[in-house]
Simulated scan of single mutants.
Amino acid sequence: MIPGATAASFLLVVILGAMSPGPDFVVVTRSSLAGGRRAGVAAGAGVALGVFAWVVAIAFGVAAVLTASAVAFSVVKLVGAGYLVFLGVKAWLAVRRGDYGDLGDAKAAGSLEAGAAFRQGLFTNLLNPKVAVYFLALLPQFLPADGSTLQTLELAAIATAGTVAWFAALALVVGALKRFFSDGRVRRGLDAVLGSVLVALGLKVAAETA
């Protein structure tokens, strides 16, 4: 078992990492804007499942193989970059259409459903091999020298819980500002900004060397 103090420290580091601006943050924020709190929480859950999958892959050595292979790393990275650009273009198209409905109306035109938001969060995280690199560097700091696979899986569960907690809080904050974000002009401006950020992140990821 992971000692309580170690688990608490790891949880704090994971939450602080999740709070840093990046693709996951942008996707959850836009999901909350496009579909309300439910979609935002679903996107956060998708991100958290991606984190869990990466840590489990590390526990069984799969992630180490990926990061050791320049070709595999580059393929996953480029696919992930393309996906971010795709999401950004979707945001731009929403701006062009201007189909903004009330966040509280799940059937409103342009409203993002929870299932779609979950998939966006999941794929954004899974297609980002930098997440594997991050946890490959982080996990040894919280595992004993003779750490077992079970202890790594414990950390995976903690990382998942911390990620869900942060992104659920983010979605709730955006949801609490529903009246402000329900304004079509505000939503249009935010979609334009967030879409541009997603495209820029995608191009940045594609341009980076492994």
Score class of each variant (00 low, 15 high):
119 R>G: 00
191 D>Y: 15
209 T>C: 01
88 G>E: 12
117 A>Y: 12
117 A>M: 12
162 G>M: 02
95 V>E: 05
119 R>A: 08
175 G>I: 13
14 V>D: 02
149 T>D: 03
163 T>S: 05
108 A>G: 13
6 T>R: 09
24 D>F: 04
4 G>M: 12
37 R>F: 00
21 P>T: 07
198 L>Y: 07
74 S>A: 14
106 A>M: 04
88 G>I: 12
115 G>Q: 11
15 I>Q: 07
141 Q>G: 09
30 R>I: 14
155 L>F: 02
120 Q>G: 11
91 A>G: 00
74 S>K: 15
20 S>D: 01
84 L>M: 12
47 V>D: 00
67 T>S: 03
76 V>E: 01
64 A>N: 14
176 A>K: 15
122 L>E: 05
87 L>H: 07
31 S>W: 03
172 L>Y: 09
162 G>D: 02
38 R>P: 03
100 Y>S: 02
76 V>Q: 05
145 A>M: 15
67 T>H: 09
137 A>K: 05
74 S>G: 10
115 G>N: 13
153 L>V: 15
159 A>C: 06
189 G>F: 14
178 K>E: 13
77 K>T: 11
8 A>I: 15
71 V>G: 06
34 A>V: 05
13 V>N: 03
14 V>P: 07
94 A>D: 08
14 V>C: 06
195 G>L: 08
